[in-house]
């Protein structure tokens, strides 16, 4: 039979040895790349954060009075009381991660990096942050405040104003442009 009459290998359902080897190289190379990526990821992915996780048993609830923010170093968080309720607010700014200090003059959290402001309940007031301050679940057990630092809840969306707080003059970091 004339060569030209042969159906092409794919149509015949057969492949030549060369084609098989070529495909084999490519598949093998691909598998190798996948294996390399997977092993690197397994080796280099962050280990579970062991430090700071757990439930912190803090002071009696009555010692956190209205309008105050108390920094808890072990948890890098603030315990605040605003509108009667207690909050455990993460110190890390939800914008770009700066440590947000409490400004006693204004009674607000004012981030020094890009001027995001939050009220005592961690609700967003001003600046480029995408949401209010992130927070940890807080429970009062036998009168004492317990904060679970293994769980981090995202802050309330912009415009949330559940806790109405009086505005004060003064400030530490001017609000963002």
């Amino acid at each position: 039979m004339d060569d030209a009459m042969l159906p092409d290998p794919v149509a015949r359902g057969t492949v030549t040895r060369r084609e098989l080897l070529e495909a084999g190289w490519k598949i093998g190379g691909g598998l190798l790349a996948v294996a390399a990526a997977w092993t690197s990821w397994e080796a280099l992915r962050p280990l579970a954060d062991v430090s700071g996780g757990g439930v912190l048993a803090l002071k009696p609830a009555s010692s956190y009075t209205e309008g105050t923010a108390t920094f808890v170093r072990e948890g890098r968080l603030y315990v605040t009381r605003a509108g009667g309720a207690l909050h455990a607010l993460a110190q890390k700014c939800p914008h770009l991660g700066c440590a947000v200090p409490f400004c006693a003059a204004s009674g607000r959290f004012e981030c020094p990096c890009h001027g995001s402001h939050y009220d005592l309940a961690g609700e967003w007031l001003a600046g480029p942050a995408p949401r209010g301050m992130d927070r940890h679940p807080l429970q009062v057990i036998d009168g004492r405040v317990h904060v679970n630092t293994t769980v981090l809840e995202l802050g309330p969306p912009l415009g949330t104003d559940r806790v109405r707080l009086p505005t004060r003059e003064g400030g530490c970091a001017p609000p963002a442009p």
């Binding site: 920094f71 170093r73 890098r76 110190q91 914008h95 770009l96 700066c98 440590a99 947000v100 200090p101 981030c111 020094p112 990096c113 890009h114 001027g115 480029p128 995408p130 970091a173 963002a176 442009p177």
Partner: peptide, 27 residues
Amino acid sequence: NPNLTPEPAKAPWYFVGLQELLAHFDP
């Protein structure tokens, strides 16, 4: 000091343009 951010906290100068942009737009 992870607990104290100096004022102001700026990125290195070649990224500071980006940081300026961040003050005006969504991250």
